[in-house]
Design a protein around this nucleic acid. Structure first.
Length: 425
RNA sequence: GGAGAGGUGGCUGAGUGGUUGAAAGCGGCUCCCUGCUAAGGAGUUACAGGAGGUAACUUUUGUCGAGGGUUCGAAUCCCUCCCUCUCCGCCA
């Protein structure tokens, strides 16, 4: 959520910033509404002041002479009645304006960082660095072929259970998934993150707080009988965990790591990544999340990204770091670094983590603040995958494949998996 | 799902129409006394928003679960919703 005051006082700068996302955002209408609301706020305030004075006066008169029926008293009451009519009329206008302003502002995306590369779409994203040597050989198998050969997961049967884009992990596949979750959680908790295991169902307010609603209701699954949705990412419940709180400044930064299943409708992605573990309606993810001092979010962004990177390094998976351009940035983010892992079968890098600095966008929507110099100030929030489990498994299968059909398990993961090699069992 | 009880400041807990943002206690803060410890005394202490000021601060509005309503005036009366707790049922 953008700052209403800023829209009221400096609408052009807001428009300029948002237009870098590649779409024209005309905010003149919201601007008008905020100005109008401000005027009414001031009127209401002063009318309430007068009316309150009058009520006190009437109270005093009545307590002096309890059976007072004088015309003076009657007139005072009539005057009070006039105040009330005026005030409730203005309050009605306030409510209407509030609703309009809120619904329009909550559809506006976050400000862009001035450091984000300017560009139209994903083709303008900037590769910052690469790590490791991408595996480039002939006759490499895809992870779904490996999965089928080693009997690690099953897609076809899963459509019976649910529908397409769901998967059932089997035997060593399930074991590997579990090992990855534990490995990542252990790494991050040792590194100063507090582990959370939040609810998988979240209410509308939570989704609004982190920016998925109202605009992207199509992208999450909704429970029809309740005001509950299947959480698309742990970012949602973690943001909501501190909704309407004022956090002690000394506690900052608060760093959480959470494993959660994630549910996404993937509307509009028909035909893309239909095989394997890349794009599913349900997947597991270990998420990193910071609540931090607003003056330090830029450093925090570097840190959360390198914390996510550390997992890829430990697993010895080649990857690159990409600075997402303005036209490709997510709704809530002001700047995002994607980590993309090398997938040998398709000879390309695929997103495995997205690390975003949301500034005070989510904190304002969720009202998460801290006191700085006695003033309540919205915190900054950052989130990053550390990492997406299914895609990590895909990367391990493809990068670790051996000529005999087995898969080498990265050394760091072997103790969790219970073996350094994955064979048909 | 059935029955009942309840939501008041950091906490406990009074308060059924009037100058009440709210008694009392606990806790917190400041000072005094006591050579340690324990105890005692005085004072102070809700939150959020707006306006003005570099600032200390001043001023104003709102807030007793949320939202409406009645009234000159609502924590208190009416309506709607949400949540919590207890018992029973069901369940991991």
């Amino acid at each position: 959520m953008l700052d209403q005051k800023l829209i009221r006082e400096n609408p052009t700068s807001v428009e300029e910033n948002l237009s870098l996302r590649g779409k024209v955002h005309n905010i003149s209408h919201i601007h008008e509404l905020t100005v109008k609301k401000k005027e009414i706020d001031i009127q209401v305030s002063s009318l309430q002041f007068e009316s309150k004075k009058l009520s006190k006066l009437i109270g005093q008169e009545i307590s002096k002479s309890p059976n007072n029926n004088s015309p003076e008293l009657y007139n005072l009451k009539r005057k009070g009645n006039e105040y009330r009519t005026k005030i409730s009329d203005l309050e009605e206008q306030q409510r209407t304006l509030d609703k309009q302003i809120n619904s329009e502002i909550s559809n506006l995306p976050n400000f862009l960082s001035k450091d984000a590369p300017i560009g139209k779409d994903e083709n303008n994203n900037v590769q910052v660095k690469t790590w490791g040597t991408p595996l480039k050989k002939q006759n490499l198998k895809s992870h779904w072929e490996i999965g089928e050969n080693l009997n690690l997961f099953e897609s076809i049967k899963s459509t019976k259970i649910s529908k397409s884009r769901f998967i059932t992990l089997i035997g060593n596949g399930a074991r590997l998934e579990r090992a990855l979750i534990n490995f990542m959680l252990d790494m991050h908790t040792k590194n100063g993150y507090l582990e959370l295991m939040p609810p998988a169902l979240v209410n509308s307010e939570s989704l609004t707080g982190s920016g998925q609603l109202p605009k992207f209701s199509n992208e999450s699954f909704k429970c029809s009988n309740d005001d509950l949705w299947l959480s698309p990412t742990a970012e949602v419940p973690i943001t909501a965990f501190h909704r309407n709180e004022i956090i002690d400044f000394k506690q900052l930064p608060i760093k959480y790591v959470a494993y959660s299943p994630c549910f996404r409708r993937e509307a509009g992605s028909y035909g893309r990544d239909t095989k394997g573990l890349i794009r599913l309606h349900q997947f597991n993810k270990v998420e990193l999340y910071w609540f931090c001092d607003p003056s330090k979010s830029s450093e925090a962004h570097q840190k959360i990204t390198s914390d996510a990177e550390s997992i890829l390094k430990k697993l010895n998976l080649p990857y690159r770091l990409v600075d997402i351009c303005t036209g490709d940035l997510g709704f809530s983010s002001s700047r995002t670094f994607d980590l993309e892992v090398w997938l040998p079968s398709s000879q390309c890098y695929r997103e495995i983590s997205s690390c975003s600095n949301c500034l005070d966008f989510q904190a304002r929507r969720s009202s998460v603040r801290t006191k700085i110099n006695k003033k309540n100030t919205y915190l900054h929030t950052l989130n990053g995958s550390g990492l997406a489990i299914g895609r990590t498994m895909a990367a391990i299968l493809e990068n670790g494949q051996q000529s005999d059909g087995s898969v080498k398990i990265p050394d760091a993961l072997a103790p969790y998996f219970g073996s350094n090699s994955l064979k048909l069992s």
